[in-house]
Simulated scan of single mutants.
Amino acid sequence: MQQIRDFIEDQFLIEFDESFPETSDLFKEGVMDSFGYIQLIRFLEKEFDIKFSEQEMTANVMVSLSLIEKTVSRKLSESITD
């Protein structure tokens, strides 16, 4: 999951630390907008060979690094069992 953290930090010019924890809402903090979110989705789909449904993309499940990592982990485990 380090590649997700690296992508977000590089793409959005932030650094996760004590003052900006992994649970921070990237939208509310002004780090990511809808265009950035689409870039993130494309990166995740390409990097991890997964696909997100429209419902997953609009359900506010991927607003923080910790939630993004949890969602990707779930999708990866689902793809293994399919």
Results as ranks from 00 to 15, higher is better:
57 M>Y: 03
27 F>G: 07
8 I>P: 03
73 S>L: 11
69 E>Q: 15
60 N>K: 13
59 A>E: 15
77 S>D: 13
58 T>D: 13
24 S>C: 04
28 K>D: 15
29 E>S: 13
75 K>E: 10
53 S>G: 14
28 K>Q: 14
23 T>Q: 12
26 L>V: 06
27 F>M: 06
54 E>H: 09
20 F>T: 05
67 L>G: 00
37 Y>N: 11
22 E>P: 01
61 V>N: 15
3 Q>M: 09
70 K>H: 09
11 Q>C: 08
11 Q>K: 14
44 L>T: 11
56 E>Q: 15
17 D>Y: 01
17 D>K: 02
42 R>H: 04
22 E>D: 12
26 L>S: 07
69 E>L: 04
43 F>N: 10
71 T>M: 11
53 S>D: 12
64 S>Y: 03
41 I>K: 03
36 G>F: 03
15 E>F: 02
50 I>W: 06
14 I>Y: 05
12 F>E: 06
16 F>S: 06
32 M>V: 12
9 E>R: 07
16 F>P: 04
25 D>S: 12
15 E>N: 07
71 T>R: 11
37 Y>S: 07
25 D>E: 08
27 F>T: 06
33 D>M: 10
45 E>N: 09
48 F>E: 06
65 L>V: 05
50 I>R: 09
2 Q>S: 14
82 D>A: 12
72 V>T: 04
6 D>T: 14
19 S>A: 05
38 I>D: 00
4 I>R: 06
9 E>P: 03
78 E>V: 02
59 A>R: 08
26 L>M: 12
